[in-house]
């Protein structure tokens, strides 16, 4: 399995995210108090944390596929 980062989806997502940041700077109306790009921040931090956790779990309790068959 090749482990490279696929280029096209990454570019697409990056551009779209950038556009969303810009959209948040526009004066559209949020309900209640709102930090610009709050959701983008949550998404990055939250998902980043999840990935880290998953890797740690994999390192702690990851076993070979045939673990139970042996």
């Amino acid at each position: 399995m090749d482990n490279r980062v696929p280029r096209k989806p990454v570019i697409f997502c990056a551009v779209a995210t950038a556009l969303l940041v810009l959209a948040d700077l526009l004066p559209y109306h949020h309900e209640g108090p709102h930090l610009p790009s709050l959701y983008i921040g949550i998404s990055f931090i939250g998902c980043g944390a999840l990935i880290l956790l998953a890797i740690i779990i994999g390192w702690l309790v990851g076993r070979r596929e045939d673990f139970y068959e042996r």
Partner: peptide
């Protein structure tokens, strides 16, 4: 805003 950064992170 929630989904696209997550997708970026995923890739």
């Amino acid at each position: 805003q929630l989904l696209l950064p997550a997708a970026l992170l995923f890739f």
